[in-house]
Design a protein around this nucleic acid. Structure first.
Length: 113
DNA sequence: ATAGTGACATCGG
DNA sequence: GCCGATGCCACTA
């Protein structure tokens, strides 16, 4: 299928993020069965700029910090988008991150649970 | 084929 | 509890 590429797999999962929720790079990495490729998830997100169907602004690091905001239109666009969805963001950090955190469906076949 | 890089995560001091 | 260093894997040059 299309998800033969690592990037596309990341996009598929990222698109599953519910509106007003956030997730982490590591969570996505695990969801696609590449728990140790969290860095690549962010890398894939960078390429997602060509695909506006990927809500990269809903993906943050494990502490809820908007590390990738610098890659957006250069300003607080990422924060604005999150706040627009009801996510409180203060100082580039997601508030209630633990509550808003959404765990993507783990592909059980890819990873041992 | 090798080397360098990166929007993370984890361990150690 | 905070800061520094290391590991990790896929992509690009």
């Amino acid at each position: 299928m299309d998800q033969q590429n690592f990037f596309e797999r990341v996009y598929v999962v990222a698109r599953q993020i519910p509106h007003g929720r956030v997730t982490t790079y590591g969570a996505i990495a695990r969801a696609i069965g590449a728990a140790r490729s969290a860095r690549m998830v962010g890398y894939a997100m960078n390429a997602s700029h060509y695909d506006d169907t990927v809500p990269a602004h809903r993906v943050v690091n494990r502490v809820g910090l908007l590390t990738g905001k610098h890659h957006f239109n250069g300003t607080n666009l990422m924060q604005q988008l999150l706040e627009s969805e009801g996510v409180i963001v203060i100082d580039n950090k997601v508030q209630n991150f633990q509550e808003l955190f959404w765990q993507p469906p783990i592909e059980e076949g890819k990873m041992q649970i």
